[in-house]
Nucleic acid binder design. Structure first.
Lengths: 355, 355
DNA sequence: CTGAAAGCGCTTACAG
DNA sequence: CTGAAAGCGCTTACAG
């Protein structure tokens, strides 16, 4: 029976090789001074036995769990998959695991989720706050992903610049009358996006902002936004501040018999999974989640280490990234200008044609 | 300075109360025999100091980490938020944390993700496999959430019964010609749903299944499914096997100038967050994720405990739930029958009317 | 370059 | 009912 029986530990490997556990530890970590050949023998044996260090033993000794927490106040957020995947990937690359915490959309439970993670002994926490929630000092190292204009933000997408992408895009297509659709006037993220759009469109164009109540946005349906009336007023483009709202706008316009993008163009944010599956596809601004997650994890680990070395502040507080603002990118799926200067696109799909 | 300085441990509490660490441990866990009054004194002191046991110390001693792993081969799946939230909640209620693992949609990395979690010392793993992936024995206790017709399934929604809900619903509205839209003929989940729909519609109705290539479903846009042609052929209802596909169908129909639900009814599965926000809302079948997660966690913990007691099998294998099949429920948002026997609904939203 | 020893915080038999 | 002791697996000063 030469199949490896369960997991070996350091002591067992040391015994097999007639060396001390300390030497095995040093050889495997590369820290202590161990002769090259002995180190090689140890590494070979360890690999052969499939040795994996015990996280519990290491954590107890070093006081570090090698685990980070991830808190998203609104786990039902459709962006959650993108964020979770990017954070998990960046953390894993640095040798950390990611524990999820759920605050079920409740702002009060956000604090509770953080406490819960601390009780579990995480080394640090990544937080994506909802709305304008300010993160108070928690006693743990924290990285905050929100918006560049939020005080205490560690790193985030440059939502203003993302807005500019939308504005320039619509301006280049010749749109002069634009409705911006948002859901939360208290959100820094949404306000930055509005600012960027307005700024890129310039002062000479007609721009209106339509704020939908968040609960209304979710608990339609049927509550009309009156978008068709806006088209009748001469608006030719709708710039939604999220794809969720863009989708609502698209279906309302189509249901009203209007054609997108021929009668009205539509843009969104987030580039959610279905943005490319629908007809027509929605032009959308996408965050560089891998870059954002990478910056967040890097800054968080720096903070954790500085505290471990004891030269950090008592309350470690919030991590600061070296590049706190990450550019967004535009995914173009509609290229129509306002009528009558229509582009070729409209000819392809006349109303009523099923292709 | 009477503010609590960092986290106290068992030994410190014991010293403050002039008792042994063993007694404190026993009092707090309620396991050993400790006099009621001493136990009370200990609990009070512990609460006062905000004592939280060290998970590392406990894990090292007991060999259990109190952490479970969650593996979703396709973390980009829009259902991920629902699943993650339910699993996290059920696990937290049982005193467990949840570590996420990402296999980035790659089937080969599924195994790697499992190994990675095991290396981190999780006590068990919850897996939601993609497609027909069979979970091989892993050496760790595992709970599988897939479909009742998948061998080795621990617990899942009753997708066949969910299909029946759709079929009965459409039949009751008088639909006699139905197109089912799916993306993966190899998926047990989708096949169960198809079976249920067919069975409830009965043999006298015209039912066709349209399989869209998954990559095609995601990397449209513009690749028409030819749905308008189906309407011309007399089909009056489209039953998509997921809301993602229902959304694609809805926008294609609308773009072709057809009205939903007047010209064609539409149903989906999953009740994703936007299903109620769009116009019109999509009738959708919803899983009872809290119940499914609860069964999965319960079965998994039973398996973990049986192995700990040593009366389990060498390879713990896959957990079996007492109630492996959880009913789904129908969320009705459209109540149109086929023309000419139309319901009142059509009058409300004539084509071209913006409300 | 290598090893013996201590200790991270906890729980579990085992004595008393 | 309570306590002293051992040990889970690891790493880190400290000797040699």
């Amino acid at each position: 029976m030469n199949a490896p029986r369960s997991r070996p530990n350091l002591t067992q490997i040391a015994a097999l090789l007639d060396v001390s556990a300390a030497t095995v530890s040093n050889a495997l970590s590369g820290k202590g001074r161990v002769s090259a050949e002995l180190a090689e023998r140890i590494r070979t044996k360890a690999a052969e036995l499939g040795y994996m260090p015990s996280h519990a033993g290491r954590a107890l000794r070093t006081g570090r769990s090698q685990v980070l927490g991830l808190v998203l106040p609104d786990i039902a957020n459709p962006l959650f998959p993108q964020i979770a995947q990017a954070i998990e990937h960046a953390a894993a690359a640095a040798g950390y695991g990611v524990l999820i915490a759920d605050s079920r959309g409740d702002a009060a439970m956000q604090t509770q989720a953080i406490t819960h993670l601390q009780d579990r002994g995480v080394d640090g926490i990544v937080i994506v706050p909802r709305r304008g929630t300010r993160i108070i000092s928690t006693g743990s190292p924290v990285a905050v992903i929100d918006s560049p204009s939020t005080p205490g933000n560690t790193v985030s997408a440059d939502h203003w610049q993302g807005g500019e992408l939308v504005g320039s895009h619509l301006a280049a297509l010749g749109h002069r009358d634009v409705v911006i659709i948002g859901s939360n006037p208290a959100s820094n993220v949404q306000n930055d996006r509005v600012g960027g759009i307005r700024s890129a469109l310039g002062p000479d164009r007609r721009v209106e902002v339509l704020w939908i109540e968040p609960h209304e946005a979710l608990h339609g349906p049927g509550a009309s936004l009156g978008l068709a009336a806006r088209v009748a007023e001469g608006f030719t483009a709708f710039a939604a501040l999220s794809d969720l709202q863009a989708l609502r706008a698209l279906t309302e316009l189509q249901q009203a018999g209007l054609r997108v993008p021929q009668d009205a163009s539509l843009t969104g944010f987030d580039d959610l999974v279905w943005s490319s599956a629908i007809t027509p596809g929605i032009t959308s601004v996408r965050m560089d989640m891998p870059a954002i997650a990478g910056e967040a994890i890097q800054a968080l680990l720096r903070l954790i280490e500085s505290r471990d070395r004891g030269n950090g502040p008592r309350d470690p507080g919030i991590a600061r990234a070296s590049r706190p603002s990450v550019p967004m990118s535009l995914v173009v799926r509609q290229t129509c200008g306002p009528s009558p200067s229509r582009t070729a696109e409209q000819q392809q799909t006349p109303a009523g044609d099923s292709q």
